[in-house]
């Protein structure tokens, strides 16, 4: 056993060093993937949730701030950018199918995007959720960077939006397979498109686990819905949020 003061020094060193938290993210991911595999890729065994829950507990138990954690985890977070660019590859491989489905995709995008944004504000607003949280909830189905900038522009809290975007993605990824099976929809293009539109990148990650075509269409929907939400939000959000201006914030 090492003496306690040395153990304390070691912890101070490790807990403030990017190495520990970067490694924790990777280990948590590998464990989550292992559990998901053991569960035969059951929709409830969502990799993001399975990894984020033990990491969150670890941060709380060790009293580590999110900022310290993120200093290490940012190296993984950074790869979201190139991964988004990489979505062009499955999109291009499926170009023939995408072209054939242009009309249904456009219709589904217009209606789906509006539904995602308007319904969450109406439901939460009627239940008395304060307007600052409503503004943070509204862009929940869009990809994180778009959602955060839209929340900021409409009086929401961008960091809170990031959380709502994650919760939406995890819920969507969990629910998509059972829902589509219950509806009897076997068209993987349609299934993937719905997953990517309502549950952005996490829905897309799930779609890629299920079927490559579903993944490609999810990637398109993620990009299109991001753009669509960004274009529509400045027009419809201010009047929509105004309806609930009386909902006061109590923390």
């Amino acid at each position: 056993m090492m003496p306690p003061h040395r153990a304390a020094d070691l912890w101070v060193y490790l807990s403030t060093n990017p190495l520990l938290w970067l490694t924790s993210v990777l280990v948590a991911y590998l464990l989550a993937e292992w559990v998901a595999d053991k569960a035969h890729r059951h929709p409830l065994a969502n990799t993001v949730a399975l990894a984020a829950i033990p990491l969150s507990l670890l941060l709380m138990l060790t009293g580590t701030s999110y900022q310290t954690f993120f200093d290490g985890a940012q190296f993984v977070h950074f790869l979201l950018g190139p991964a988004t660019v990489a979505l062009a590859i499955p999109l291009y491989r499926n170009i023939g199918r995408v072209r054939a489905m242009l009309l249904p995709m456009t219709c589904a995008l217009l209606v789906g995007s509006l539904t995602a944004m308007v319904s969450v504000v109406l439901i939460a607003g009627l239940m008395g959720v304060p307007v600052a949280i409503l503004a943070s909830l509204a862009p929940k189905s869009a990809t994180t960077p778009i959602a955060m900038s839209l929340a900021a522009a409409n009086g929401g809290l961008p960091a809170l939006t990031a959380v709502f975007v994650m919760l939406t993605g995890i819920f969507g990824a969990v629910v998509v397979t059972p829902m589509m099976n219950a509806l009897g929809i076997r068209d993987f293009a349609a299934r993937g498109f719905a997953a990517g539109l309502a549950a952005h990148g996490i829905g897309t990650a799930r779609a890629f686990q299920v079927d490559p075509t579903a993944g490609a269409f999810a990637g398109i929907a993620l990009g299109l819905n991001g753009a669509m939400t960004a274009i529509v939000a400045p027009v419809i959000l201010p009047p929509l949020l105004h309806l609930f201006a009386g909902n006061a914030l109590t923390l």
Binding site: V25, Y29, Q74, M166, A205
Partner: peptide, 9 residues
Amino acid sequence: SLLFIPAAV
């Protein structure tokens, strides 16, 4: 999925 873990935490 890995890439979303930091934000989810």
